[in-house]
């Protein structure tokens, strides 16, 4: 399988990568509330999508060996352009195209100095919620930890 390596438009951008990951996990309510909170709503033009398709999810043999195709997952994605020219991409698991479109809008807004703070507030909210959920799950799992002890067999 060949790689879709293209000329890079921009160098790998850790902040944007992290932000896109958080936007992918933002709920529709979180995204809608952040959109409603914007004082100045930008004009949004569709470039691609929003559309739902598949991504083939890969695993690794033995957990860390060579890759194999595990099965597909639904993915929704959107690319939009703001009237000020910024291009935003949104992509997330599931068939919710509305969330993908909003994620793309916030990815584009993050590139605008004036909207940076609004986007950061949304990202912080999502990150806090995820951290809380993760913490809660880890604690619930930890409560099921057992220490088996081996019984001595036979007589001493």
């Amino acid at each position: 399988m060949m790689d879709a390596k293209l000329k890079q438009e921009s160098p790998p951008d850790p902040a944007r990568k992290k932000a896109m990951g958080l936007l992918a996990r933002a709920t529709l309510d979180e995204l809608n509330a952040a959109w409603e909170a914007l004082a100045d709503k930008p004009d949004v033009h569709p470039v691609r999508g929003p559309e739902t398709g598949l991504v083939m999810v890969r695993g690794r043999i033995g957990g860390g060996g060579d890759p194999f195709n595990l099965g597909e997952a639904t993915v929704s994605r959107a690319t939009i352009r703001l009237s000020s020219g910024e291009i935003g991409h949104g992509q997330l698991l599931g068939a919710d195209r509305q969330r993908a479109r909003l994620a793309a809008i916030f990815d584009a807004l993050a590139q605008r100095e004036d909207d940076r703070a609004n986007v950061d507030a949304l990202l912080q909210q999502v990150a806090d919620r995820l951290a809380l959920e993760e913490r809660r799950n880890a604690e619930e799992t930890a409560a099921t930890r057992v220490d088996f002890f081996t019984m001595v067999r036979g007589d001493d």
Binding site: M2, D3, A4, K5, L6, K7, E9, R48, T79
Partner: peptide, 12 residues
């Protein structure tokens, strides 16, 4: 190449 990649998903 980028146009094809973005709009069709095909790799060069």
């Amino acid at each position: 190449p980028q146009w094809i990649a973005f709009h069709t998903g095909a790799a060069v």
